[in-house]
Design a protein around this nucleic acid. Structure first.
Lengths: 196, 196, 196, 196
DNA sequence: CGCTAACCGAGACGGTACGTCCCGTCTTTAC
DNA sequence: GTAAAGACGGGACGTACCGTCTCGGTTAGCG
């Protein structure tokens, strides 16, 4: 976020922090929460192990901080006027995110860790709700404009997001983007005026 | 299942296995995948540590086997003729399962572990698909009987299950049973003939 | 010792005992006292591990018993009238025994084990003293016959045996038989009348 | 030797190493090679078990190193001009060493271990030969000065040392110092000019 | 522009869990 | 009734990390 370093901050500190957080995320994505080893992170970041502990109290603190890093711009929000189309774009983006992005790779580790760590729990809640707000709004707009049947936007967006996360976390076949339209049809009803 | 022990099986073996698997599940639910310690399981089961390794090659093997234990009776299947009502009952059961049962408590750990372990992955896939088959069938029946709008049963059951798992895994507020009806309405359309 | 089996003894018992003791000695010679594993002995003897424990209380008891087996015929005693020559023959035999026989291979293990085990200690004492009695007698005869200078037979036989054991246990070059004559010359003085 | 620590060496390392080696020797003397447990050594040295393995690869490496410690000043060498008297002093010192010193207590364990470990074998060879060099030289001097009969100094020193080790390792009655003079008389012939 | 304080890497330290191996005891089953 | 098979609790081994610590060496940025 802060593009310019704090005046009272040592240049080396920022450099180290950045490298470590980056390495931590890679490590988490590759090895998972269980295999996440401080040694590996340090080595990967080209940094002494002590430097990790100088900046974070322990494994968990570093992990939480690294994941915080992912919290930027959950969905930049496609500029799309048609609300139903907007729903589809948001979901397609979600499909891509959970399947390919760093956060997607960390998702299982994160879900597991959040179960026991208060900070991570909060982070996951935030991430989730922020992400879904845009979707819920788009669904609401679609309902209002008559592009969708009269559903509860909140529940509908849970069902839509849910399907995507469900496929990612509970099965070995994540939702492909091309199924998004059909999914939206299923929850919001068929597109009006035979648009598809 | 088998009430009488196998003739060629040592009585102690069955006793140990039973106690250990039970302890393992407790341990997993309490400490998660990361904190799951063989020592603790052994102690909890009142058994020597070597006995664990005698029956399972390592942590992961024990874990997989313990979780297999949960795989019984995914949904005892409510005897309900009305297909839409049946969908609601299955979902309500799922809500209860993910929120309260042993498997629910283990879910985050399982999701995480499955990401890296082939056996656990398979187990989770099985568990998931078996569980959803009943739901998909019920949705199909509802559609056929005119109790639901014309949705793709497969996608609809993903959306329905998805919403429940999503709430359990990604948020700190699992889906309460009382919201199930509204969820079903959202995905399958409002109940016909103003039944509710 | 007992060549004929006790009337009340099961034939299998004697068979097992024999096979086990034999296997134990091989194991001891190959793996030493530390590496001596009951499992291996049992397997080598083609016998169940429990059978070992039925006949001996523990590792040490079996070991002691096996070594007892070696106690037969410490030195068959060469039939040799000339006492000095007899000394040489006894020493040559000792050289061969410590270098090549089963007891020789077990010697380091035995020395070590005797340090802590009362039974083995006694066994080793017996073995040692019995072996040396013949030598001491021969030295005494040599002295009496004027074949040797006037030495204390006891101390001389300790010096002679000692040299052989010393080479075997403390160095990696055991005493070769061809050095025996020189050794005897050293301790008993040069042979009289330039016999060599 | 080095009274001041190496500049590049962590103070803790020297402290740990010292404590551990000391503890290891105590342990070896008390429990023997078989009973020598890393756990016990660590505990005795007031050190974590991992510290042992940080400095030595395994049990054997530690053992070898600990024994190396004993290798200092095999015999400080009594300042004695009379060569025969010098032989007696060296032997008396050896008697004391094998009976009472740390190395003496470890001797059976060492003999046993050397049988299977290359490093220990080398150590024992070194120790033995270094120790005997002084004795052989003294015997040679005694022969040269006419204090002894014309014996092969090498074989004579083997016979002398051998008697001492033989008594220590093969019997339960180590050679007492007061028998040393008689032993020397036996091998080197009676003292000249009736000095005793 | 030189000093000092902070940061840095390297890695030792006490712990704890892992998975392996063996011991001595025991239960069960087959002959 | 004896033996084989092998499960059991226990405990040491050697490995891998954890989080803490000590150690010098470097470097930033203030004076």
């Amino acid at each position: 976020m802060a593009m310019t370093r704090q005046p009272g901050t040592d240049r080396r500190v920022t450099r180290s922090r950045r490298a470590i957080l980056r390495a931590a995320l890679e490590e988490l994505a590759e090895a998972g929460h269980a295999g996440f080893a401080m040694d590996s992170v340090a080595h990967r970041a080209g940094v002494g192990r002590s430097t990790l502990y100088r900046h974070w109290n322990d494994r968990t603190a570093l992990l939480a901080d690294a994941l915080e890093e992912l919290n930027v711009q959950p969905a930049p929000g496609p500029e799309e006027a048609d609300p139903r189309r907007r729903v589809e774009l948001l979901l397609a983006h979600l499909c891509r995110a959970v399947a390919e992005s760093q956060v997607g790779r960390c998702l299982p580790a994160l879900v597991h860790a959040a179960e026991r760590d208060e900070d991570l729990r909060r982070f996951l809640d935030d991430y989730t709700s922020r992400r879904r707000q845009a979707l819920t709004a788009a669904v609401g707009a679609a309902v209002a404009s008559g592009d969708a049947v009269d559903v509860d936007p909140e529940l509908a967006s849970q069902a839509l997001s849910g399907a995507v996360f469900y496929r990612r976390l509970m099965t070995s076949a994540p939702m492909p983007e091309r199924e998004v339209a059909a999914l939206v049809d299923t929850v919001l009803g068929p597109p009006p005026r035979g648009r598809r």
